[in-house]
Design a binder for these strands. Structure first.
Lengths: 206, 206
DNA sequence: TCGCGAGTGTACCGAGTGGTACATGCCGGA
DNA sequence: TCCGGCATGTACCACTCGGTACACTCGCGA
């Protein structure tokens, strides 16, 4: 009856938060997988190619993750976690004016070293909008994750709650759109100039 | 030497602009293909599934387009053409204030009937950023196509050329970001409110 | 020293892919 | 009436895919 050869087959340890010996290898593999996927895309990845790229056989990926589907889920989850960590680093430095804080945030977001991660983000958006199951979780945090700190910043700057939320959502959309523009055109100067135009309107001329 | 059986094999007529009997069938097929792809995604389409969905055998798709690759190119091109036609319909009606024109444009863009097309657009963006060859042309028109009419509108409203370009690029990015927000969250009211916030800042309170 | 279990590689399977070869049916002109 | 060319279907090919079966090699406890 058993579909596999082993009565306790390929346990693909749930690693996750456990830093045990199992989870080590698992976490190491998923980290390498995310790096590869950020560099080469996730759309047409295959277990064999991915395995060859990160130095294991596709058999091992099945062993550790159970199936390709679960490996992709893990990759998306880890990529989301990285993005979240990036977001948490973007705490506002107290002495800074809002516009200057926004400017620094933009420059951190557009660091060329993050380009792969950003491209992966947009790629996952596209797939998530199509309902590809492992990518759908991206949609959940797409707006809400970023809205919360932005709204907090707006209210701290004295906006009433409703207008704070609207302003935050508007600002997030603009930054996203400019990021896509930058990735698509590579026109750093042009996009930076458009951002300055945005900042001037958003935070007033001063 | 010939790889195919026929000395004049599967001519996959270049149809294109020619409305002859060949191009008719070809154009009809590519139209149906775009519809299907807009509804079900382009990422994992196969000739067999696509053929079954639009009522031909995969053999016929190869016959008319030569290869899957060329069919995808044709699909992207046609989808781009549709988008361009949509854009050309969005002429400013003379008697309208700028803000009201922008509001109408937004409502047309977010027509639920266009959701499939918009999703396809973002899906293609994701693939194009990865360098998938048939999707790359999307990147070319991504900014420039829209910038031109927007810049024209800005200069007509009295902005100097440099600021017109920056404003247009900024506005385009915001609308794109809000569109992605809407597709991802479905929160029509929230996104509309954010758009109103944008319009208030962009065109002044008046 | 033995054995056992975890980790790993290799070979394989069925399914699905893009693409090809060939047969068949159909229609218009001689 | 016949015939040639086009459209289309069916069967097939080589290949890759995700996933499985099994053999092998270690290290470690008894």
């Amino acid at each position: 009856m058993a579909k596999t050869d082993d009565p306790n087959p390929d346990s693909h340890p749930q690693g996750g938060t456990v830093p045990g010996t199992d989870g080590d290898r698992r976490a190491q593999l998923v980290d390498a997988a995310v790096d590869h996927v950020a560099a080469h895309g996730i759309a047409d990845v295959s277990l064999r190619r991915l395995g060859a790229a990160i130095g294991v056989s596709h058999r091992m990926l099945i062993h550790y993750f159970g199936s390709k589907e679960q490996l992709l889920v893990e990759i998306v989850r880890t990529s989301e976690r990285r993005r979240r960590e990036l977001l948490s680093q973007l705490r506002l430095e107290p002495g800074l004016s809002s516009v200057e804080a926004a400017r620094r945030l933009w420059h951190r977001l557009t660091d060329p070293g993050l380009a792969g991660q950003e491209r992966l983000f947009f790629e996952l958006c596209g797939q998530a909008l199509r309902g590809r199951p492992e990518a759908v979780p991206v949609l959940d945090g797409l707006v809400s994750d970023w809205l919360e700190p932005l709204v907090a910043a707006e209210t701290a700057a004295g906006a009433d709650p409703v207008s704070a939320r609207n302003r935050a959502r508007f600002g997030l959309a603009t930054v996203r759109g400019l990021l896509l523009d930058l990735l698509a055109t590579g026109d750093r100067a042009g996009v930076d100039a458009a951002l300055e135009e945005f900042l001037r309107l958003y935070y007033g001329p001063e």
